[in-house]
């Protein structure tokens, strides 16, 4: 199973037939495994890595440190849920160290993101403070570098 997951994480466009060939497994086995992983939320979706900086789309991403007071009974989860339900929130992690949540927020402009923090995130009950860091350039995401490296010049040799 893990081998199949690693391949899909590398490129989710691999077809069951390709994965079957590469792993030496039966194609039906691959299909069944993927289906089961989807059902069990081991696979939580498929997406595409877009470098929006190369498009005309205006987009801003911020990384926000959030400190909170954990709630009785629910600990962090209840507040987490209240944060991640917003569409603006791309990712949310509970962190060790000097703050509690790391929230990745996307928006169309600095103002839009700032407004989200001021009007939606900061007022949530239990949130003590926020510190917003805007991302200036995305170099690498999900193991993929976004800068295009130069190609070495063509070589004619026989090895």
């Amino acid at each position: 199973m893990n081998e199949i997951l690693k391949l899909l994480e590398e490129d989710s466009r691999y077809t069951p037939a390709q994965i079957a060939a590469m792993t030496g497994k039966d194609e039906q086995y691959v299909r069944d495994t993927v289906k089961r992983c989807e059902e069990e939320h081991i696979i939580n979706g498929y997406t595409t890595l877009v470098d929006w900086d190369r498009t005309s789309e205006e987009a801003v991403t911020a990384f926000i440190e959030v400190k909170i007071t954990p709630q009785r009974d629910d600990g962090y989860d209840r507040i987490a849920r209240r944060i991640y339900q917003y569409d603006e929130v791309e990712s949310l992690y509970l962190m060790s160290g000097s703050f509690d949540f790391s929230v990745i927020v996307t928006g169309k402009s600095l103002r839009e993101v700032s407004r989200f923090v001021a009007e939606k995130l900061a007022p949530i009950e239990g949130v003590i403070s926020t510190a917003t860091h805007f991302i200036m350039k995305r170099y690498k995401d999900k193991h993929r570098a976004f800068l295009v490296e130069p190609e070495q010049e063509e070589r004619t040799l026989f090895v």
Partner: peptide, 28 residues
């Protein structure tokens, strides 16, 4: 002389050609 040179000469003139000819890792 290596007889393979002509393949590279042809290859160089082609667009969207695929080379599975050079024997070296494709990793940096």
């Amino acid at each position: 002389p290596s007889g393979i040179r002509k393949f590279f000469d042809i290859l160089d003139t082609m667009k969207d050609a695929i080379s599975l000819g050079i024997g070296e890792p494709d990793f940096v």
